[in-house]
Write a protein that binds this DNA or RNA. Sequence first.
DNA 1: TCCTTTTATCGTATATTTGCGATATATAAT
DNA 2: ATTATATATCGCAAATATACGATAAAAGGA
Lengths: 112, 112
Amino acid sequence: MALNKKSLFHPDDILLSEFAKVLGHPARIAIIRELAKHEECICGQIVEVLPLAQSTVSQHLQELKKAGLVQGTISGVKSCYCIHKENFTKVLGLFNEAMHDIMLTNNKEKCC
Amino acid sequence: MALNKKSLFHPDDILLSEFAKVLGHPARIAIIRELAKHEECICGQIVEVLPLAQSTVSQHLQELKKAGLVQGTISGVKSCYCIHKENFTKVLGLFNEAMHDIMLTNNKEKCC
DNA sequence: TCCTTTTATCGTATATTTGCGATATATAAT
DNA sequence: ATTATATATCGCAAATATACGATAAAAGGA
């Protein structure tokens, strides 16, 4: 992008866009879905469900972790992951609220 | 990405990720917000509110249009844009529902 | 101790996105 | 007819993301 202009935007919009962005890849949606589906934290088995190499899945997990949507702990040889319930719920809530507000503001009858 | 693996994922996840992706840039969130805020469709004035060149804003508008979140019509010299209320509401609803379902599934007490 | 297993990280190739200026195009105004 | 204005598109450069294989690191088991 030649120059990174992202920081020139409103912090709220940056936050919302970062949440959206991390969910902007089907692998990461699939990971979240898979994490939610199991009773226990998942250690490893995620790779088997995705059509991607182990290193790639690991990268996606790191991004989800960096965004705070997922948390992980090391348990022996394995790394275990689960959804960071509190964060996820909170950020999803903010996102919904923002989008809802936008649609409330947008009270045009007819348009274009 | 060497090879595009996106198509290997579940269509639902692709749909959700595409919605998220288009909102994954602060400029596009800001555009949506700006469009909602005005009584009438916006013709032009969006560029003035964003810290980006005209051509860049136009590109972001095209992406929002391609994703169906925004609609536009040409009115004389100007192009006018507004939120595609029906589509936006629908896709946002699907997104919320999916995320909500995921969080309902994720009924772990304690984790990692 | 040595080997195996598991996951993270590094290096690299390629794809995509972001951004701009220049230009094209179309209408409006003079 | 000429000029001005508004917006889209093109061409390009730079940044970021995606993906993989190879390798490292760390723990467990033989």
